[in-house]
Amino acid sequence: MFLINCPFCGERDQSEFSSGGEAHIVRPKQPTELSDDEWAEYLFMRKNIKGIQFERWNHVHGCRKWFNIVRDTSNDKILSVYKMGEKPPVNYK
């Protein structure tokens, strides 16, 4: 059970949060211009990495804010937490 450092509320138990999958997938600005394959890439394709992964989380039973984290899925260590709209930390890739 993770301890997640909500950028708005501080450290809270994982049970207060819900996970929103892979981060930094931007909704295309002009979906109608996309081919079926390109749209499918946005819609369905998600990474499932063993190692450093960028994820969206929502403090659903708290401030209800969305934010991003960097997590090492091999040991579940959360390496960084940052707000929506902020650039991902560069030292992980």
């Binding site: 929103g20 931007v26 909704r27 969206r56 929502n58 659903v60 209800r64 804010k65 969305w66 929506m84 709209g85």
Partner: peptide, 13 residues
């Protein structure tokens, strides 16, 4: 409500 908040906060802030 969650879905609407998600779009508002992440896609259309």
């Amino acid at each position: 409500l969650s879905k609407l908040e998600d779009y508002l906060q992440t896609e259309w802030p």
